[in-house]
């Protein structure tokens, strides 16, 4: 699903974006930072992005920063009927 020339696939992009968010929250105390990551993703990611995120997380979260994986516990899983 990626383009020819070294562009990231959507899933790679999602991991990249989640890690970017985590990097910003690195400067917060640990608990607050993890909560910040989850809140940010809950607020701004549509259900299909979160669905893809969980597919990767449930498969081990390859490439995700540890704080992203930790935040996964409080990121909302999209409902079945979500758009």
């Amino acid at each position: 699903m990626s383009h020819d020339d070294g562009r990231m696939s959507t899933k790679q992009k999602l991991v990249y974006m989640a890690n970017q968010i985590a990097t910003f929250f690195d400067s917060k105390p640990h608990e607050e930072g993890v909560a910040g990551i989850a809140e940010h993703i809950n607020k701004f990611w549509d259900p299909r992005m979160r669905r893809q995120f969980f597919e990767m997380l449930d498969a081990g979260g390859d490439g995700m920063k540890p704080t992203v994986i930790e935040a996964g516990a409080t990121i909302r899983r999209p409902r079945q009927d979500a758009a």
Binding site: M1, H3, T10, K13, K43, F44, W45, D46, P47, R48, M49, P78, A82, A83
Partner: peptide, 19 residues
């Protein structure tokens, strides 16, 4: 809908993915 929607770059990614 109570769920946030797609932003422009996410729309384009989703389009490439076929959703």
């Amino acid at each position: 809908d109570e769920e946030p929607g797609l932003r422009i770059p996410n729309m384009l990614d989703a389009a490439v993915d076929g959703t």
